[in-house]
Simulated scan of single mutants.
Amino acid sequence: MSTNKCPHCGEYIQKNSLTCQKCFKEIPRDQPLSPEYVIKEDKKEKSGKPPTVAVLLAVIPPFFGLLGLGMIYLDHRDKNGYWILAIGLALFLPFLALLYIMSSSGFLSAVLLFIVLVIIFLLYASAAAAAFIETVFGSVFRILKF
């Protein structure tokens, strides 16, 4: 089943919805929606861009702290890609700073910093996995069958 975007607020809605669940405005039915508001299930159909480039953008840049570039490549109007990018940078930059501090600190503080580094790395890795799944499959919930 394909989905549409609300022409008023841009929220994803079911194709047969009469009103938007976010802004509660009526969806116009007298004229068909323009192609930029119709979203297909397949990422290639959604953007018309090759999915191979999106997958590469979802896999390679996270090693440099840039998450969500595949999502932004597929749909630059979707704000989720920009949120993932901001979260990735907010986790990656402190990780590098703590790694630098840990290299010049004593043993006890290095052990404590290592614990913090592991926690930050796990958060970053989970955000990177979520960005990859969102890019390739369109939704994390589609993988989990929700």
Results as ranks from 00 to 15, higher is better:
3 T>A: 09
4 N>G: 01
4 N>L: 05
4 N>V: 01
4 N>I: 05
6 C>K: 02
7 P>I: 01
9 C>N: 01
9 C>I: 02
10 G>S: 04
12 Y>I: 13
15 K>S: 13
15 K>F: 06
16 N>W: 12
16 N>T: 10
16 N>G: 06
18 L>Y: 11
18 L>I: 01
21 Q>A: 09
23 C>H: 00
25 K>D: 00
25 K>L: 01
26 E>P: 06
27 I>N: 01
27 I>Y: 01
27 I>R: 02
29 R>T: 00
29 R>Q: 08
30 D>M: 09
31 Q>P: 03
31 Q>A: 10
32 P>E: 00
32 P>N: 01
32 P>W: 02
33 L>D: 05
34 S>K: 15
34 S>N: 13
34 S>Q: 15
35 P>I: 02
37 Y>E: 03
38 V>S: 07
39 I>Q: 13
39 I>T: 09
40 K>L: 05
40 K>E: 08
41 E>Y: 09
41 E>R: 08
42 D>K: 10
42 D>I: 04
42 D>Q: 08
42 D>E: 06
43 K>A: 09
43 K>R: 13
46 K>G: 14
46 K>R: 15
46 K>M: 14
48 G>F: 10
49 K>V: 08
51 P>F: 04
51 P>I: 07
53 V>D: 06
53 V>K: 14
55 V>N: 02
55 V>F: 12
55 V>A: 11
55 V>D: 00
58 A>T: 06
61 P>S: 00
61 P>L: 00
62 P>H: 03
62 P>T: 02
64 F>M: 14
66 L>C: 12
67 L>V: 13
69 L>I: 07
70 G>I: 04
70 G>L: 05
70 G>Y: 05
71 M>T: 11
71 M>N: 15
72 I>P: 15
73 Y>R: 02
75 D>A: 03
75 D>V: 02
76 H>R: 07
77 R>E: 03
78 D>A: 13
79 K>D: 12
82 Y>E: 07
85 L>T: 07
85 L>C: 07
88 G>S: 02
90 A>Y: 04
90 A>F: 07
91 L>Y: 08
91 L>S: 07
91 L>H: 09
92 F>Y: 15
92 F>W: 14
93 L>V: 12
95 F>N: 03
95 F>I: 03
95 F>M: 01
95 F>A: 02
97 A>Y: 11
99 L>P: 06
100 Y>E: 04
107 F>T: 14
107 F>R: 14
107 F>P: 06
107 F>I: 13
109 S>R: 13
109 S>T: 15
111 V>R: 14
111 V>G: 05
111 V>D: 06
112 L>F: 15
115 I>L: 15
115 I>D: 08
117 L>F: 08
117 L>I: 05
120 I>C: 11
120 I>K: 07
122 L>V: 12
123 L>F: 14
123 L>P: 14
123 L>G: 13
124 Y>N: 07
124 Y>A: 05
125 A>N: 11
126 S>F: 04
126 S>N: 13
126 S>E: 09
127 A>S: 14
128 A>Q: 02
128 A>N: 07
131 A>N: 10
132 F>C: 06
132 F>Y: 15
133 I>R: 01
134 E>N: 15
134 E>K: 15
134 E>A: 14
135 T>F: 06
137 F>M: 04
137 F>K: 09
137 F>H: 08
138 G>T: 01
139 S>I: 04
140 V>N: 09
141 F>G: 09
146 F>P: 11
